[in-house]
Each structure stands twice: as C-alpha cells, then as structure tokens.
C-alpha cells in the first residue's frame, strides 16, 4: 500500500449543540483522489477546514505524513505541503491573474521580509506563475484583474494558486461549484492530470465528476462517516443509497 499522506483520527468539532464533525476518520494516500460526498450540512466543509488548519478540532488528531499537525495553523500546514482551494471563490480580486499566482509562488519562496525589490518584475515569482497560468489555460488572461474574470476562470485561477504552492496534498472544496457542464468537464480533465503530482481530497456535489475522478469515496451525513470505499462499493452500498444517493439513480 502506498504511503499515507494525510490522516485524521476521530476528529470532532462541536458548535453549540451541533456536532459538525463526529469522530471522523479519513486518510489520503499518495497518488490517490479521495472524494468526500454527503448532503448539505453533513460537515464536509468543516472537515476540510480542520484538515487545512483554519479551525482546530475539539477532539482527535491530524497527521500530515509522519507529523502530527493538529496544533499547527493554516500557514504552517501550507508550508508543509498542504494546498487548499475554497468553496466560495477566494482570489485577490484587485490583483491581476498573474499577481494572484505570483503571490502563491512567493508564499513558498522563503520569507517575505524583502522590502526593496519590485515583486511585479521578480522573475523568480513571475515565471513560475506564468507557467502555471499557461498550464491551466489562463495565459491569455494574465494581465486581467481577477475580479473581471468569468466565474469558471476564477475557479481555475483558484486552482492555479493552490497548485503554485506545489502541494503534496491538495484539499479542494467543490471545485466545480457553479460551473456549467463544459467548464466542469474541463475541470475534471484538469484534476485528472493533477493526480500525478498531488494527492487530492475533494468535496464535491457533482456526482459525475466524483465517480469519474475518485479512487475512493467517503460518505458523510450529520457529521459522521457512514461509508468509505471504492466508487463501485459506494454505489452498491445500501446505507449510502438510502441516505444520500437515492434509490432510483445509479449516478
């Protein structure tokens, strides 16, 4: 079996009376695409936020590779190779597409207590950023402020930024959210090519994409994991069908 890159053990997060995550176990192996599905309010985004280090679980541990990262905050986990994209597009709207990605490159190019040289013309930032935009098909939009990009382009930019940090593990929160059929197909193809570089943990509602991409699927409802398995196993699982996938569709 390949190496486990990310592992959460029994993580629990309570908001007042609501158990957003209840003893969740999940692991992500090298080279794997692992999808988390479940109805709205199942705790998927809360799980991702805990894996990313934005919120700390009340109970449970999180390991990134060998290392226990439960107590580390988001920037420190990012430095250890954890990338992240958000459900709601989270780009720097005033910056150009190129500046957005260059900033992500900068995050992993040593400290930023560099006060004098212009970042905009710094080849060490701009060149990798250009290459990344090129790869995601945004090369022609490099000079456009992110706010003026289309929704689909912004989602791609979001991904470009996550990738520019060269993550070993990439957490994607609904990468297809709000995309039309053709955009989301393109995104699926793109994510397929990413598998070689990063292990992907994605939360997604687009079942076509999930079953096309995922090597393993974890199903959550009400903060609990009710099943984990290969797409075929999940499709055949009666509990999952009752709880989520429905009875009439085979996805």
């Amino acid at each position: 079996m390949s190496e486990i890159l990310l592992r959460a053990e029994g993580i629990t997060k309570r908001y007042g009376g609501i158990l957003a995550c209840d003893g969740v176990n999940i692991e992500l192996r090298a080279g794997e695409t692992h999808a988390v599905i479940g109805p709205n309010g199942a705790g998927k985004t809360t799980l991702l936020a805990q894996l990313g280090g934005e919120i700390t679980p009340d109970v449970g541990r999180i390991h990134l590779g060998e290392r226990d990262v439960t107590g580390l905050r988001a920037p420190e986990r990012a430095a250890l190779g954890l990338g992240r994209s958000f459900q709601i597009t989270s780009v720097f709207r005033e910056f150009t597409a190129l500046q957005n990605v260059a900033l992500a490159v900068q995050a992993h190019d040593g400290h930023s207590f560099r006060f004098w040289r212009k970042a905009r013309t710094d080849a060490a930032l701009v060149e990798p950023a250009r290459a990344m935009l090129d790869r995601l098909g945004l090369a022609g939009r490099a000079a456009v402020p992110a706010a003026l990009l289309s929704h689909g382009e912004q989602r791609q930019l979001e991904l470009a930024m996550a990738l520019a940090t060269k993550p070993r593990v990439l957490l994607l929160d609904e990468p297809m959210a709000g995309m039309g059929a053709s955009d989301s197909e393109r995104m699926t193809r793109l994510l397929t090519t990413l598998k070689r570089e990063s292990a992907l943990l994605l939360v997604e509602h687009d079942m076509d994409a999930v079953f096309a991409l995922a090597d393993r699927i974890t199903v959550m409802t009400y903060g609990r994991v009710i099943a984990t398995g290969t797409p075929a196993e999940i499709r055949a699982n009666q509990t999952v069908r009752d709880a989520y996938l429905g009875t009439d569709e085979a996805a």
């Binding site: 934005e54 958000f86 900033l103 900068q106 995050a107 905009r120």
Partner: peptide, 23 residues
C-alpha cells in the same frame, strides 16, 4: 511594491486566503 508589500496588500484583501497559501 516589494514582496513585503504584496503580502500586506494580500492580507488586506483576503487574509484567510493568504494564510491558506502559506503566509
């Protein structure tokens, strides 16, 4: 306009994102 300045401006625009990409 320096790297430092870009971090500052990024933090103003979207601090959560800045932390997620590792700042």
């Amino acid at each position: 306009d320096s790297r430092f300045g870009m971090v500052l401006r990024g933090a103003k625009a979207n601090e959560r994102r800045m932390r997620a990409i590792g700042f």
